[in-house]
């Protein structure tokens, strides 16, 4: 093994660089997480983009069509589900306000007491438990507002990242490969291709 000072310097420099990279990645770990999720989603959607490209669309148009499709599906789902959900919520609200819910809970409590009284379960205070549960849920929402803001930001950022990774992912990959030294270039390209095939069989 070569033990010249130049070799040691190279090794120390490489370790230092690796340490800095680890520090940097841990500092931006939230962003790395988002990038990984986006890359995975873009990877899953890629065959669809390739299919659209084979039908004569450009990459940008194919990506735009996929996103329009997703927006359309989510929009239709919301349009169909939202009225039903809001009707249910209103019905529950009315039931609580008119005291029907309390009556129903009392009925359930009585039924449990009659049927399972032999087990020693008589008083459950379902109404009280429901109220405290609702209060806890309120507290939980209040204490997790910051998380929700982060979630909302992620929900905005991820589609953007997916869009650009799907559109320009191939270019990014090509540029990353261009960094590889000539000696390992063919090998790394072959390895990437084989990994893509294997991973594709699992994910797609």
């Amino acid at each position: 093994m070569d033990t010249t000072p130049g070799r040691w310097m190279k090794l120390i420099f490489s370790l230092l660089l690796l340490g800095l990279l680890v520090l940097f990645l841990s500092a931006v770990r939230d962003l790395v997480k988002l990038l990984i999720i986006s890359a995975l989603l873009a990877y899953i959607m890629d065959p669809l983009a390739v299919f659209l490209e084979s039908r004569g669309l450009g990459r940008t148009a194919a990506t735009a069509v996929i996103f329009l499709g997703i927006i359309l599906i989510i929009g239709t789902f919301m349009l169909l589900a939202f009225p039903v959900l809001s009707r249910e919520v209103i019905a529950i609200q009315d039931a609580i306000q008119s005291g029907q819910a309390r009556l129903m809970l009392a009925k359930v409590e009585r039924y449990i007491g009659d049927s399972f009284g032999f087990l020693g379960v008589n008083s459950h205070d379902l109404a009280g438990r429901m109220q405290s549960g609702l209060a806890k849920a309120g507290d939980w929402i209040f204490s997790h507002i910051l998380d929700m803001v982060t979630l909302a930001t992620d929900l905005v950022l991820i589609p953007f990242m997916v869009f650009f990774l799907l559109k320009d992912g191939r270019e990014v990959k090509k540029q990353l490969i261009s960094i590889v030294p000539n000696r390992y270039f063919e090998f790394s390209l072959n390895l990437l291709y084989k990994m893509d095939q294997q991973l594709g069989n699992y994910l797609r």
């Binding site: 261009s178 000539n182 270039f185 063919e186 072959n190």
Partner: peptide, 24 residues
């Protein structure tokens, strides 16, 4: 042209070796 990879080699640098798996 957008698909092709552009590489630079110095004089006497091996591009590929006999026996290596052929890729392109």
């Amino acid at each position: 042209e957008r698909i092709l990879h552009q590489r630079e080699y110095s004089s006497e640098e091996v591009i590929f070796r006999q026996g290596d798996p052929g890729l392109g």
